[in-house]
Write a protein that binds this DNA or RNA. Structure first.
Lengths: 214, 214
DNA sequence: ACTATCTGTTGACGTCGTGTCAATAGACAT
DNA sequence: ATGTCTATTGACACGACGTCAACAGATAGT
């Protein structure tokens, strides 16, 4: 089973051990919340001893920060089409936006436990908070605010929307709601559940920005 | 200055000391995040020793749970009028809803640091998580879902809204956004800022539920 | 006023997880 | 075979936690 896992008292290439630790952390977070993640608990899943951890990571907050690195970019990528788009009708914009939200949700389904761990860690450590809230989230807010500003200028969205604040509200809603839906380690995620979640998000975003519906 | 603060090696009535500890915790959280709140740090603000803490509270998570008790009810109270209301026009409903959101925001302005601390603690302790997320938040979601369901039935809101999921998205957005705006210990909260935040929240809620605007 | 009792209070202790460091022992080159 | 390099680890000190027996201030009874 754990063919590639690291065995005790053996030398490895630095990256090999580092990747083994990252994998062990991911595996751990699949079934346990971040608050139960201890350095010893993670290292037990590699064949290495606890002190070996500190050769590769400063502490467990550094560990989740690196876990985020592999995912952070994805969250931008999936939304890019809507984020940089413009000059469509409300109907068109809605469709593109709905697609972006659906892809974003799928990313959360896939990396839910890890993202939940990062979110939890952010409230416990100033460094993680910086990377996650003020790095990732804030950049998403800015990007969304840009798009909203353009939509207000082109008349797609009403001009009583304050782009910055509206963007922050919508992004924070999405983050929190998706974490709530897909971040629990135990939950098994069904396709119907995913559909309902995406539908609710699309409703709020589209009705807020493009006012389709009654 | 600290006339009523507890002095060392003196006996007190149980509630007197307990209230002093709760006050010390509130005061601590006014200027420090929860992650820096230690039992020793709190007790240093009373005249009591660290072990005395454990005569009144099980641990620091129990402490924030009790801090929440005094506030949790308020969040329901301010929204009650809209939550239990019905049979109004969209315009009327919007006004009542906007008022509820404004009052809710004011509660957050007032108790921001404490609520932030509770939210942070919820990710670190299963008991706090139970009280906060599955107690307070979930009950708010249910109440909002009820109201949405009635609005859908009476035709005020469109019937493609799924009440439960929409309610959860909106409530989580509001919680997260208000915490983000008013939960930082250092921030000085201006009246303009409050206004902008409430306006953004009202936009999203009203446009989602009652679709006013273009 | 003296004493006994009750109980709020605390110094001292054991525990747990952390982060560090000198010493150890594989792997590789010569 | 031998030496060098460095990944690895046992052992240590630290900080915060939660507990407990012992202490001492308040109160009641005489």
């Amino acid at each position: 089973m754990t063919e590639d896992s690291v065995s005790r008292r053996r030398r490895h290439r630095p990256e090999e051990a580092e990747r083994a630790i990252l994998a062990a952390a991911r595996s751990f977070l699949e079934s346990n919340p971040f608050r139960e993640m201890t350095v010893e608990g993670v290292m037990a899943r590699t064949g290495l001893s606890r002190p070996a951890f500190y050769a590769y990571f400063r502490d467990r907050y550094d560990l989740v920060t690196r876990l985020l690195e592999g995912i952070g970019g994805l969250l931008f990528a999936v939304d890019r089409r809507w984020l940089v788009g413009a000059e469509e009708s409300r109907k068109e914009a809605s469709v593109v936006l709905a697609d972006a939200l659906r892809r974003g949700a799928e990313t959360f389904v896939r990396y839910g436990p890890v993202l939940r761990a990062i979110s939890d860690a952010a409230s416990q450590d100033a460094r993680v908070e910086g990377v996650y809230r003020y790095g990732l989230i804030e950049r998403l807010v800015d990007a969304v605010a840009d798009r909203i500003e353009r939509d207000v200028e082109t008349g797609l969205s009403p001009d009583d929307l304050e782009p910055e604040e509206t963007a922050r509200a919508l992004v924070l809603m999405t983050e929190r709601y998706l974490l709530d839906a897909f971040g629990k380690p135990e939950e098994c995620t069904t396709r119907e559940k995913t559909g309902a979640v995406v539908e609710a998000l699309v409703s709020v975003w589209v009705r807020t920005l493009y006012g389709l519906g009654p």
